[in-house]
Amino acid sequence: MFLGHLLLSGTLAALFGAFHFHGLLAAFVLLYLLCRLAVSVQPLRRHARRVELGSAFIVWFIGQVLLASLHVASLVLARQVRVEPAVVAVSLRRPEARLATLLGCLLSLTPGTMALEYRETEGILFIHALDARSPAAVEHLLRELERRLLHWLDAGGSG
């Protein structure tokens, strides 16, 4: 549905002669608003809700990457490097291989963390953290990422 939304936005922008970034963005937002206002058509409402949650997730995740970048930069530029790297094992709420893969990829994009291994039988994801003085903080990062990701992915089932 999202790909259809994107293709329709591109077609709409091309028809109006505004096939550049701003025109494509305006057409995307216009179609989103039309989907959101179509309250009687359930699939369109679910699609609009997914677009909202996906956009919020992306903005939040970019903020997390920026904060982690600043943290790693402060560790590198400090006079005395005080890091305690460690491998932390975290059990996932939903032990699905595709979800663990997605979480691992997102964690590996965050500076200072990297997903190492996932044991599907136990539902445990092993994470290497550059600064794991507090393993609870590393687990909290994964829990928040998992919660927000599941909230976005499960939005298609509710109206």
Rank of each mutant, 00 (worst) to 15 (best):
E96K: 04
V72C: 08
R49Q: 07
A89N: 10
G112V: 12
S91I: 09
V87Q: 11
H47I: 12
E122M: 08
V81S: 00
R94L: 08
L70N: 00
L37Q: 03
W60T: 01
G159Y: 13
Y32I: 10
L102Y: 04
A38I: 13
L44D: 02
D154G: 00
G156W: 10
R50K: 05
A137E: 15
E122I: 11
G10D: 01
L116I: 14
T11N: 03
L75K: 01
L70S: 10
L25F: 13
G104V: 11
R119T: 13
E122K: 05
G4W: 08
P95D: 12
R133E: 15
R36C: 06
G156N: 05
L66D: 02
A14G: 08
L44K: 03
R82I: 14
L24R: 02
L34N: 03
A129M: 09
V138R: 06
P135W: 07
E96Q: 14
E52N: 12
A97P: 02
L99Q: 06
L53D: 01
A56V: 10
R45Y: 03
L12A: 08
A129N: 05
L77C: 07
V41T: 14
L130N: 09
A73F: 13
V41M: 06
S134Y: 15
G17Y: 09
Y32C: 04
I127A: 03
I127W: 01
L7V: 13
M114N: 02
P43T: 12
Q80V: 13
L15D: 10
M1I: 02
T11D: 02
P135G: 12
S91K: 15
L77N: 09
L24F: 15
L67P: 04
S108W: 08
L33V: 13
A155H: 09
R143I: 13
L130V: 12
H22E: 07
A27K: 01
H151P: 00
S40D: 10
S108Q: 07
G157E: 14
A56W: 05
A97E: 13
G123N: 11
L116N: 06
L116E: 10
I62W: 09
I58Y: 05
G63M: 06
F61H: 05
G104C: 10
V88E: 07
A132M: 12
F61E: 05
L103K: 06
R119H: 12
R133K: 14
G63T: 08
A14S: 11
M114Y: 00
A97W: 00
L103M: 13
A48P: 06
S158L: 09
I124H: 01
S134A: 14
G112K: 05
L37G: 04
C105H: 12
L142E: 08
L116V: 15
H151T: 14
P85R: 13
A14C: 07
R93D: 10
C35Y: 08
H22P: 01
E120Q: 14
G10N: 11
A115V: 10
F126Y: 15
V51G: 01
V72K: 00
F19A: 11
Y118S: 05
D154V: 04
G112T: 12
G104K: 01
R36H: 08
V138P: 04
G63N: 03
V138Y: 12
V41A: 09
V76Y: 08
G112I: 15
L75I: 15
L33Y: 02
E144Q: 15
